[in-house]
Design a protein around this nucleic acid. Structure first.
Lengths: 159, 159
DNA sequence: CTCTTCTATATACAATATGATCACTATCAA
DNA sequence: TTGATAGTGATCATATTGTATATAGAAGAG
């Protein structure tokens, strides 16, 4: 797969739909001063190349009552990655797991309703015998929210 | 703010729009066997309560050529959190920053085009004199993708 | 320089979805 | 019993969509 290029128009389209997702293609084309078909085809292209991976609604765990976010780094037994991954996948509070370099083997992003609940989740997490050691960092606050728009600007052709 | 409840219909609506975001409210109501106004009002409610935080398109940094994801934990000088946060915010490759408990003070999710580029980003990152120490974990692979649907099911009323 | 290809544009049209109501019903709790 | 809340099914005018076409300009290959 080759690196996909985006230009200023692509960026503007994504920004517009990021801020006002419900406007529709026609209204977007009016706002951007281009033809409807242009917006249409740009969107299609970005979806097909994977730059836009989805238009799925973003669900906020916080609003669901999951107020605590934590990062758990797990040391796992040699060769047990597959089974541990399957174990983690079964826990809904585990939102994301990465294999990593460095001291731990896996880094998980987890959420819980509160600190007590976090303990429960961690207990469930380490309930796999192949997990040797864990260390947990609780996220106290979010300083820079999840974002990609600045990156998109940097990736833009000619910048 | 009170914890927001979701029921099975809410979950099905979100799932449907997650898998086929472009179907529209009418088609969704047909698929789910409920009235259009019901889907409409459920969506409106979930947006207003924040359960659905947005319908923004999801941009994939990987497709933009940012193939490396890393987590950097930063120790910062006492009382410099504000200025460091501002510094980090200026770096597009920094996608997310959390204040954390434990050894580090801040945890950042960063991306870069490749390993060399990651070095550049880290150099830029630590270019703030208030950053005392950093340790970086490179994400080698994603074992469990970012997800919230399983959590949504757990949060569902009566489960 | 010329040919080819790609992209954007303008326009058209039928089919469909939207937003906004409304009246009616069922359910639940006080 | 009385409200209050939610879902239903219906209507309506209007706007958007999906799809197609022909054209013009720009960029790249030879």
């Amino acid at each position: 797969m080759v690196e996909e290029m985006v230009d200023a128009l692509d960026t503007r389209i994504i920004e517009l739909f990021t801020h006002e997702p419900r406007i529709g293609v026609l209204e977007a084309s009016r706002r951007l001063g281009v033809a409807r078909a242009t917006v249409q085809s740009r969107l299609d292209k970005m979806v097909s190349t994977g730059v836009i991976s989805s238009f799925a609604p973003t669900v906020d765990p916080h609003a669901l009552g999951y107020r605590v976010t934590a990062f758990a780094s797990l040391d796992i037994r040699q060769g047990a990655r597959q089974s541990v991954a399957a174990h983690l996948e079964r826990i809904p509070e585990v939102l994301e797991v990465h294999t990593i370099t460095g001291q731990g083997d896996l880094l998980c992003r987890i959420v819980a309703r509160d600190n007590d609940d976090l303990q429960r989740v961690i207990d469930e997490l380490v309930g796999d015998a192949d997990i040797v050691r864990t260390s947990t960092l609780i996220a106290l606050s979010t300083v820079v929210g999840p974002r990609v728009l600045p990156l998109l600007h940097r990736a833009e052709t000619g910048s």
